[in-house]
């Protein structure tokens, strides 16, 4: 029983951050139809930037956010404006290839600068534990959970009740009509992509404490994100957070009740099963 609760706690905590990763991708897909295969490598970039800041200034990953978030946001904006924007709306496959190429460039760029050996970025809270009865949770996971949900709720409110948020939804629902309202569609797409990458900088810091990092890890995060987004129904906010929790839980239960390697397979197995029976995603609404 203790084991069960332990896995439950861990799965929920990590799953919330997977949900956050996927929200960024879902937003970008929603306004520009871009599926970004370099998503995971941008997470790597965020993590290695934290490592560099730690090596140079002994900066805690959480403190590094004041630098990594603005830098990554700007990088995201530039990447969309100069690389993706000319392609968007023409050939979906070209966009996919471009982001795959970007993934290789990021991966090998990181390899060139940091080398291939696994690295760690310590944080002051890294080894702190929180004990609740039989369940022991790591403080970084609790921080990740709280921040991820706070971000998700913040994004939701932003989309609902600000002009910028309404422009994002307008472009998603009908880009032509949005342009007729005087909304600059390219600008909204660029800012959304920048926002998506900025969110990754936060997610990177949340995932970092206690996790060894290496340049080739990006694809794993990309795949997890894609799975969560597909489970959630691409642009469905609640669905995506739910999908994140399911993937986090299946990973946690798999590692505890199956072997380490088989455990890592479980989320993908569950994904295939859900897609077989609910190809429209988890949530019930049939719209989009």
């Amino acid at each position: 029983m203790a084991e069960f609760l332990q896995a439950l706690a861990q799965g929920l905590l990590i799953g919330s951050t997977y949900g956050l990763l996927a929200l960024g991708m879902g937003l970008v897909y929603g306004v520009s139809g871009v599926v970004n295969f370099s998503h995971g490598d941008f997470i790597s970039l965020g993590m290695f930037m934290c490592l560099a800041l730690y090596s140079a200034f002994a900066m805690d990953p959480y403190v590094s956010l004041i630098i990594t978030v603005p830098v990554m946001t700007v990088i995201g904006g530039l990447v969309y404006w100069y690389l993706l924007r000319p392609m968007v709306g023409h050939q979906f496959l070209m966009v996919v290839q471009l982001t795959l190429g970007l993934s290789l460039v990021l991966q090998n760029g990181i390899l060139m600068v940091f080398g291939g050996q696994p690295a760690r970025t310590p944080s002051v809270v890294e080894s702190k534990l929180l004990i609740l009865g039989d369940v022991v949770v790591r403080v970084p996971h609790v921080i990740a959970f709280v921040v991820s949900f706070a971000m998700a709720i913040g994004l939701y409110i932003m989309l609902r009740s600000t002009d910028f948020g309404r422009s994002i939804r307008a472009v998603h629902q009908n880009a032509h009509s949005a342009a007729l309202m005087g909304i600059d569609v390219s600008r909204v797409q660029t800012l959304t992509f920048a926002l998506g990458i900025g969110i990754l900088a936060i997610a990177a810091a949340l995932l970092l404490p206690g996790t060894p990092i290496q340049p080739a890890q990006g694809l794993r995060y990309t795949v997890i994100t894609l799975i969560v987004v597909a489970l959630g129904g691409m642009t469905n906010f609640v669905g995506i957070m739910l999908g994140g929790l399911i993937i986090g839980l299946s990973e946690a239960y798999g590692t505890i009740y199956l072997s380490d390697t088989l455990g890592m397979l479980l989320p993908y197995g569950i994904f295939v099963l859900i897609m077989l029976f609910r190809p429209q995603g988890l949530t019930w609404s049939s719209s989009r």
């Binding site: 309404r166 422009s167 307008a170 032509h176 007729l180 309202m181 909304i183």
Partner: peptide, 18 residues
């Protein structure tokens, strides 16, 4: 071409977003 998944109020607000 109204925005189908937004309320009437939100549609009107978007109309005046310029």
């Amino acid at each position: 071409l109204v925005f189908p998944e937004m309320s009437v109020r939100e549609n009107l607000l978007l109309g005046g977003i310029n």
